[in-house]
């Protein structure tokens, strides 16, 4: 039941990300989502008593709950950008789209999943939803920072999917991915800083304007 509770938490937070109007709210939701993901992994680790999974959970906690969100918040404060997240699609429409995505995911899962275990089905649906919503955030939000967050959310979803399907990815793959994600976030942060300095804004659809 605890797994189900955490999975619901991840789903709720993913939806909540779609109604965020400001960047700090998006980062905070991402942090909470990663925290719930950590709890799911921890639950899994306790149940199967594998040392490797504990390490992976710890890495998840360190990188995605503590380090990256703090880095992103500091970045937002430093580049002093207007905190409002431009929405290409208003919150209600975003939510309805996400609903269709989730429905699609559940239908898809029910085709090939022959288990009666609610937790497994839930984990599948939630993971696919998270990947799709992460992609949605990347596409339908104006600020460049939402693209990093979208990417990180997608990574969360893939991690959850892998854990459910195959009992987790190979250990070294996990470590490598964690470092990759971390470095990726740092580099994108640096890029963000530069983009803001040159263009004095970080709105992606305006990056194609000529700047001479």
């Amino acid at each position: 039941m605890m797994t189900l509770f955490f999975l619901t938490g991840i789903l709720v937070l993913t939806y909540a990300m779609l109604v965020c109007h400001r960047i700090p709210a998006l980062i905070q939701n991402f942090r909470l989502q990663s925290l719930f993901l950590f709890l799911v992994t921890l639950d899994f680790a306790v149940r199967h008593r594998e040392a490797k999974v504990f390490v992976v959970a710890g890495l998840l906690l360190l990188v995605k709950v503590i380090l990256i969100p703090s880095f992103l918040s500091r970045l937002v404060k430093k580049i002093k950008v207007d905190e409002r997240l431009g929405l290409f699609l208003n919150p209600l429409l975003s939510l309805i789209s996400a609903l269709f995505l989730t429905w699609g995911a559940s239908v898809f899962c029910s085709w090939f999943l022959y288990t009666r275990q609610t937790a497994v089905f839930a984990a599948f649906v939630v993971s696919i939803t998270v990947v799709l919503v992460g992609f949605f955030i990347m596409v339908f939000r104006m600020k460049a920072l939402s693209q990093i967050v979208g990417l990180l959310v997608m990574e969360n979803g893939i991690f959850l999917l892998a854990s459910v399907m195959a009992g987790g990815m190979p250990f070294f793959v996990e470590i490598a991915i964690a470092f990759d994600v971390f470095v990726c976030a740092i580099i994108t942060g640096i890029f963000m800083y530069r983009i803001n300095k040159v263009f004095t804004h970080i709105e992606v659809h305006r990056l194609t304007d000529l700047k001479g």
């Binding site: 789903l11 709720v12 939806y15 909540a16 939510l95 609903l99 989730t102 839930a122």
Partner: peptide
């Protein structure tokens, strides 16, 4: 409340 409505519909879908 739109978010709440969506969660309820989502629950129905599931």
């Amino acid at each position: 409340l739109g978010l709440a409505f969506l969660f309820s519909v989502l629950a129905l879908v599931i």
